[in-house]
Computed example of a mutant assay.
Amino acid sequence: MSSSLNGKVVLITGAASGIGRATAIKLSKLGCALALTDIVETDLGETAESCHTEKIITAALDVSNADQSELVLKETVEYFGRLDHIFNCAGINPTPYPLLDLPEGYFDKLVAVNLKGTYNVTKAALPHLKEHAGCSFVNVSSILGLKPSKLQATYCATKYAIIGFSKSMALELGERGIRVNVVAPGFIQTPTNASVVAGPDFVKSAEQSVSLGRLGTAAEIADVVAFLMSDEAKYMNGSVVEINGGLAN
């Protein structure tokens, strides 16, 4: 894997923490140059310092803003001279709400970031990707993009939509040699994971629903993301990879 990713330029959204940060660190070890983005640029400092390369730029990016997305993608290519892979990781984790209790603006916010953000960055990146050069997108869905959960209608809607969008883009871009794949994480130990936020009892319940008996780590998601970008996955297009430790149905 290291030889096929060495020297590649990867843009990561949501890189300030969690899965985005872990993926940046993983890819830096494999020799990638990185464009790290998050909604607040100063939050990216710790990620950049943890990476094993000096080939890094950082930028503030609100993925729900199409103009910002176009500008950051353009600046990335101007700086590095190329772009090879995009990891659409920025997103808002769910809060359980009955539909009638949904706070004003919650639906619009989740759709704007989780779904339209992936759309904006994908659209902005496409003019800069060289055809038949091994370029790819990896998008983040969720186990809740594959199975429903009560009190999570809005979040499920965005994550189901990511899979539909990604599979359609895989068909559209495949003839240009550009791949689009999806990771669907289960319960992952990150600061914003809903179970972690809810407290130890919720974490214990989540762990009991996983056959491996524990939450996953952000680094374990990063391993799969890196694989999907690599030449080892060059015939994977439109795939949805579940990473959930053996989650009970």
Rank of each mutant, 00 (worst) to 15 (best):
A233R: 08
Y79W: 09
T58E: 07
K147M: 14
S142W: 04
A184D: 00
V224F: 06
F227W: 13
I143L: 06
S69P: 09
S142R: 05
I57P: 07
L173D: 04
L110R: 09
Y160Q: 09
G216Y: 01
A15G: 03
G117T: 06
G105N: 09
L73H: 12
V224T: 12
P127Y: 13
Y79F: 14
S239G: 13
T154S: 14
S136Y: 09
E131P: 10
L11K: 11
Y97P: 01
E75H: 10
G164Q: 05
G18R: 08
V225K: 03
D84H: 13
S50P: 02
N65S: 11
T76E: 02
K159N: 09
Y119W: 15
V180K: 02
E131C: 11
S205M: 10
L144K: 06
N181Y: 01
A248P: 01
S230A: 09
G91V: 12
F137Q: 03
R179D: 04
A157M: 15
I12A: 01
C32D: 02
L129K: 13
L27N: 05
I221Q: 03
N249T: 12
H132C: 07
T154F: 08
P98V: 15
L102D: 05
K159T: 10
G91A: 08
S166C: 07
L110G: 11
G145N: 03
Q68D: 10
G18I: 06
C51F: 08
S3Y: 10
T190S: 06
D231V: 02
L171S: 07
K234D: 13
G245F: 02
A157T: 15
V180S: 01
A48R: 15
E54R: 14
D223H: 11
A222I: 05
D201Y: 00
S2C: 06
I19V: 11
V183N: 01
G164D: 10
L71K: 11
G216I: 07
A90R: 09
V111N: 12
Q189A: 14
T190M: 05
A59V: 06
N120Y: 03
T118A: 15
K109N: 06
G117L: 14
P200W: 04
L100W: 11
T190L: 02
V196Y: 00
N181M: 07
L99C: 13
G134C: 08
D67L: 14
M1R: 04
V196D: 02
G177D: 11
S69H: 09
L212M: 15
A124W: 07
V9D: 05
L151I: 02
G45R: 09
G7R: 08
T53W: 08
L99F: 15
I19H: 06
Y119A: 10
N181G: 09
Q189M: 11
G216E: 04
V63F: 07
A125Y: 04
G216C: 06
L100S: 13
H85G: 05
V210E: 12
Y119T: 05
N120T: 12
N193F: 01
T76Q: 07
Y119G: 02
L100F: 13
Y79C: 03
V63A: 12
A157D: 12
A184G: 01
D108F: 04
A248H: 11
L151E: 08
S2P: 00
D62W: 04
S28N: 05
I39F: 08
K109T: 12
V10S: 02
Y119L: 13
T95E: 13
S205H: 10
A125F: 05
